[in-house]
């Protein structure tokens, strides 16, 4: 599900933010920003501050992005995975698109129950000598406690909206939010602890080797302070640890599959 096509990704990003796509051909995209998006991306807080003070509505900019390097013209911004603009858009997404509450769209003319799922996308980082990330998308049925992995892939095939569809009603959760999240954490914890942690062992071993070398280096010297600082640095660099970071999550009301 990673971004395979930057151009399409940008189209959806700006469309989702209600920006009109003025010009959209292969490799070149011009959008009319909204005020909200101009504030988010164009880095001109003073303009907005003064224009509002003067009672003007303000004039959001247009933005032209070139996604195909062949189409570069020297005037407009070439955008690629490493460019500061993508970085900006991604951090804009990370800050703003963290929480949600959504409903599966069911086309029905009789009463249908929608069940609450707690869905979280969690990035697990394994850090030893080097670092590696893994993404887990996990869903918990807040009534019967069933869990599902690769939840995002499954949701992708459904129609999902912000509002509850006609004739549908929601079932109240049996499992509270916090304890539901605890269950998810517990499962992930077991998942990582069950793994083979050669990387961590290797890192620990290097750490010990370096600390031993260090003691040898300082042997007979009275530079207690220096040695402690060096040891701290080695520990900081090599002590293996794992972090969980929730990228985003929310409550999804879904139709029961079994029925």
């Amino acid at each position: 599900m990673a971004i395979n096509h930057l151009h399409a990704f940008l189209e959806s990003y700006f469309s989702a933010h209600h920006c009109e796509l003025l010009h959209d051909t292969n490799g070149v995209l011009t959008v009319q920003l909204t005020e909200e998006m101009d504030r988010a991306l164009m880095n001109r807080p003073f303009y907005w501050h003064y224009i509002k003070k003067m009672g003007h509505p303000g004039d959001p900019k247009q933005l032209t992005l070139i996604t195909d390097p062949e189409k570069r013209d020297g005037k407009h911004e070439w955008i690629h995975y490493g460019s500061p603009r993508v970085h900006q858009i991604i951090s804009h997404l990370h800050t703003n698109e963290k929480y949600t509450k959504l409903f599966e769209h069911v086309d029905t003319d009789h009463k249908t129950a929608l069940f609450p799922w707690l869905v979280t996308n969690i990035k697990i980082s394994y850090q030893g000598k080097q670092k590696m990330d893994e993404m887990i998308s996990i869903g918990l049925h807040l009534v019967n406690g069933i869990m599902k992995l690769e939840m995002m892939d499954e949701l992708q095939h459904k129609t999902i909206k912000n509002t509850i569809p006609d004739y549908c009603y929601t079932i109240s959760p049996m499992i509270k939010l916090h304890s539901g999240f605890k269950r998810i954490e517990k499962v992930l914890e077991n998942y990582v602890l069950d793994q083979n942690h050669e990387w961590a062992e290797a890192s620990r071993q290097t750490m010990e080797e370096e600390i031993n070398l260090l003691r040898h280096f300082y042997k007979g010297e009275t530079a207690e302070q220096d040695m402690k600082k060096e040891i701290d640095e080695i520990k900081k660099r090599y002590s293996p640890y794992i972090t969980f970071k929730v990228i985003n999550g929310g409550i999804f009301y879904l139709k029961d599959e079994a029925k």
Binding site: M1, A2, F9, I89, E97, G128
Partner: peptide, 24 residues
């Protein structure tokens, strides 16, 4: 609320998948 729309919620997930480092 405010709650993310499905599109943007999914895009954030995609962005995170894209920026992560899947191997040491």
């Amino acid at each position: 609320g405010p709650f993310s729309s499905w599109d943007l919620f999914m895009m954030n997930y995609q962005a995170a998948l894209t920026t992560m480092a899947p191997s040491f």
